[in-house]
Simulated scan of single mutants.
Amino acid sequence: MAKPLGVQLYTVRDQVKVDRDEVLRRIADIGYGAVEAYDPTDDPKGFRRTADELGLTVPSTHAYALLSQEPDAVLDAIATVGADLVIIPGGIPEEDFTTRDGLDRTADLLNGLAEHAGRYGMRLGYHNHWWEIEPKIDGVHAIEALAELLAPGVFLEIDTYWAAVGGADVPALLGRLGDRVLALHVKDGPGVKGQAHTALGEGVMPVPDFLAAAPGALRIVELDNCDTDIYEALAKSHAYLTELERA
């Protein structure tokens, strides 16, 4: 059975602040079957209740809070939300991805958090931006060098757009990382830092090539910012991905 297409709710963060339940309803109405939370500590019981009512699964969540709050409290909230995959989406100094010592520190941090998450039956992962791609450590992208230092159960959520902007041949990168990659962030746009993203299929990203390189990974749409109506962009992205799956 194919995994449902998801939306990272950071895409609609401004709308969530106004009416979270209405946002979830509109995402479900578009046809998405999953959402990825960005702050699971914000009313986890209410979030889960609404997601269940709408038939939305919550396979994964971002968890910046693990870097600053008591881990058990955060993981208890994630257990209530129901996610099995817990992702650190940044918050580690960018310069730590430019040296071997920095990568060692990062791996120690992630491995420790992964051990803690494992006691809850969860897996911990890391989500990239461009700054984990641009630096090369011993001839490979920093994210690849980091992967070699991570415990076997720690996974990666590869943001395909930022990996491309950072200079990676994304399909080749995904091929080398292999089973480490459990989720993809899929977005489109001009491929330039600081410029707005677009609906999938309306930018320069070779999205079909990215998806083909990691066929078993979760597909999660995320648009960091967008100049058009965000719900229209999400609807177009859903239609684009659905058509790709049918092809």
Rank of each mutant, 00 (worst) to 15 (best):
L244R: 07
A28L: 11
V221P: 02
V181W: 11
N111W: 05
E202N: 13
T228N: 14
R25I: 03
L24C: 11
A145F: 09
I220G: 04
H116C: 01
G216A: 13
V74M: 03
I137Y: 05
D43H: 12
E36C: 10
G46P: 12
V170Q: 05
A114Y: 01
T228K: 13
R219A: 00
I220V: 15
R105K: 15
G201A: 01
V192A: 02
E222K: 15
H129S: 03
T50C: 02
L244F: 11
A239Q: 08
E36D: 12
N225C: 08
P135H: 09
K17D: 14
D169V: 05
V165C: 02
I158T: 09
W130R: 13
Y240I: 10
A247K: 12
Y161N: 00
D179Q: 02
F210R: 04
A233T: 09
L56P: 06
G31V: 10
Y32K: 06
R246S: 07
L182H: 12
E202M: 03
R105T: 07
P215C: 09
A34M: 07
A51L: 00
D21K: 13
V12E: 09
A79D: 10
I133W: 13
Y10I: 06
T99N: 05
A233L: 05
G55C: 01
L177H: 10
C226F: 03
H197Q: 15
L113A: 02
A164T: 07
L54A: 04
A233C: 08
P93Q: 04
D138L: 03
H141L: 02
A34D: 08
H127Q: 08
D159V: 02
L200M: 07
A145C: 06
T198G: 03
L113R: 05
N111Y: 03
A212V: 04
I27Y: 10
V192I: 15
E115G: 12
V165I: 14
V140A: 05
D52E: 15
L67H: 11
V74W: 01
I137D: 08
G201H: 06
E22V: 12
A212Q: 13
D14S: 13
G91E: 02
D14K: 12
D138Q: 08
G203S: 05
V154T: 06
R246T: 06
T98S: 11
V207N: 01
